[in-house]
Amino acid sequence: MAAHHRVRTTAALCCLGLVTLGLVACQEGGPTRPVAPSRAGSAAEAGGTAALIRAAKKEGRLNAIALPRQWANYGGLINGFEKKYGIKVVVDDPNGHSSQEIEALKRYRGRQRAPDVIDVADTFAQSAARQNLLAPYRVAQFDEIPPDQKDAGARWYNNYGGYISIGCDASRVRNCPESFADLLRPEYKGLVSIHGDPAMAGSAFAAVYAAALANGGSFDNIQPGIDFFARLDKAGNYHRAEPGPATIAAGRTPVIIEWDYLNLQHIDRLRGTGVKWKVSIPFDGSFSQYYALAINKYAPHPAAARLWQEYLFSPEGQNLRLVDYARPVLMAAMAKNGTLDKALAARLPTVEGTPQFPTEAQLNKALRTVRAQWAKAVGG
Rank of each mutant, 00 (worst) to 15 (best):
F229A: 09
G244R: 12
P224T: 04
L183A: 10
M200P: 06
M200Y: 07
I256H: 14
L18M: 13
A343L: 01
N319D: 00
F313Y: 08
P349R: 13
F357I: 14
K57H: 06
K336S: 12
R174H: 05
K276D: 03
A210T: 03
A121I: 01
D227M: 14
L262C: 09
E178L: 05
I145H: 02
A154H: 02
L18Y: 11
A366L: 13
R6S: 11
G317K: 02
R111Q: 10
A246I: 15
G274D: 13
R107M: 03
M331S: 00
K365I: 14
Q289T: 11
E45M: 14
Y74K: 04
E82A: 12
Y298F: 05
R185S: 09
N237T: 14
A335Y: 02
A12D: 14
A201M: 04
A154M: 01
S286C: 08
C26Q: 06
R61C: 07
I194K: 11
R231V: 13
A125E: 12
I145C: 10
I226M: 07
A332V: 10
D92H: 08
R8V: 11
Y261T: 00
S165N: 04
D284S: 08
L270R: 07
T32C: 10
S280H: 08
H195R: 13
G216H: 03
S288Y: 04
G236Q: 14
G379A: 13
V323F: 14
E360I: 08
E144K: 00
L340R: 01
G75R: 02
D182F: 09
Y290E: 00
I65N: 12
K57R: 07
A294Q: 06
D151A: 01
A152G: 07
Q149I: 07
P254E: 03
A2G: 12
N237Y: 07
D284W: 02
L264E: 02
N63D: 08
L340V: 01
H97E: 08
Q373G: 06
A36L: 10
G48T: 11
K88G: 03
H5W: 15
Y74R: 10
